[in-house]
Amino acid sequence: MNLDRKALKKYRAGNVTSAFGTDLMMQGFTSIPNILLKHYKAMGISDIEMLLLVQLLRIHSEEKDFFPTTETLANCMQSDISLIEDVLASLIEKDILAITKYYDEFHDMIISGYDFEPLFESVSEIWACAKVKELEKTQKMLEEQEQQSVKNNFPEPNHELAQLYKTFENEFARPLSPMEIEQIQKWVAEMNSQLIREALKRAVLLGKHNFKYIDSIIMEWQKNNLRTLEAINNYDINFQRRRNTKVYSGNASKTQSSDAKKKAMIESLYMS
């Protein structure tokens, strides 16, 4: 009894469409991976080589023929035998197809046959490369989204704001932290950058290289509605006159440097 023989069916008369559908299902299908169809060009497989591979897979699956002759393949593709031989040789040379030995359990014998393992090894390499590119693209998108999120939280500075950042970094001799940048932006939203520079200058004069002390100076000015350097200087002088109970000698006052006077005034104003 030949187990490989095809089943024949007697069709009902009068319905060609249903007969076709029945025959379509009974003869089965050849499964071709979409990854292979999508990337065979990238694998160096030509169109005719791909078509021959499809026929080899079909014959292997449907007819259980592991090693079809070139004549059989030529008939399937309506092509010359010499062309089929060249295409087969090309696939083997490219390490897409191989010839190996199979054990035929039904006939209990060793037979030769085409081996598709090299083909699917190549497909797996293409898949791996595509997956790496996909992951890299995903990572890049995530990084861009993260950068955009940072930009939304800390808007791109204008020229004046950028110069202000640079001034602080020069005085502090280090890069600013995100919290410090946010603090400067808050100050700029509330007052003129010239006053912020003045507050920084006064803090540096006293050796106070920290934002907390600068903020205390700015808060004092805001509390007293001081919005210009002239108003601040007048406030300092008047405040010093009211607070100053110490009598300086005329000679001491004359020999005291202007920076020393200013430092003493700031100390009495903001360090009391």
Rank of each mutant, 00 (worst) to 15 (best):
K6T: 06
K10I: 13
R12Q: 15
G14W: 06
T17I: 08
T17M: 07
S18Y: 05
F20N: 08
M25H: 15
S31E: 11
P33S: 14
I35R: 13
L36F: 05
K38N: 07
K38S: 10
K38Y: 10
H39Y: 09
A42T: 07
A42P: 08
S46C: 02
S46W: 00
S46M: 01
E49V: 01
M50T: 06
Q55F: 04
L56P: 01
I59M: 12
K64F: 07
T70S: 15
E71C: 12
N75P: 00
Q78N: 14
I81Y: 02
S82E: 08
L88Q: 10
S90V: 04
L91I: 01
I92K: 13
K94G: 09
T100S: 14
H107N: 15
I110Y: 05
E121D: 08
S124K: 14
E125R: 11
A128V: 13
K133I: 06
K133A: 09
K137V: 03
Q139T: 09
K140P: 00
L142T: 05
E143R: 06
E144V: 04
Q147V: 02
Q148L: 01
P157Q: 13
N158R: 11
N158F: 11
H159I: 13
L161H: 12
Q163L: 15
F168C: 10
A173H: 15
E180Y: 04
E182Y: 05
Q183T: 03
M191K: 08
N192K: 15
R197Q: 13
E198Y: 10
K201Y: 10
R202V: 02
R202K: 08
V204Y: 11
V204E: 14
L205S: 15
L206S: 04
G207M: 03
K208V: 02
Y213L: 02
Q222H: 00
N234F: 10
Y235F: 13
F239Q: 10
F239H: 03
R242C: 00
N244R: 07
K246D: 09
V247S: 09
S249K: 15
S257T: 15
A260K: 14
K262H: 08
K263Q: 15
A264R: 15
M265D: 01
M265E: 01
M271N: 13
S272L: 11
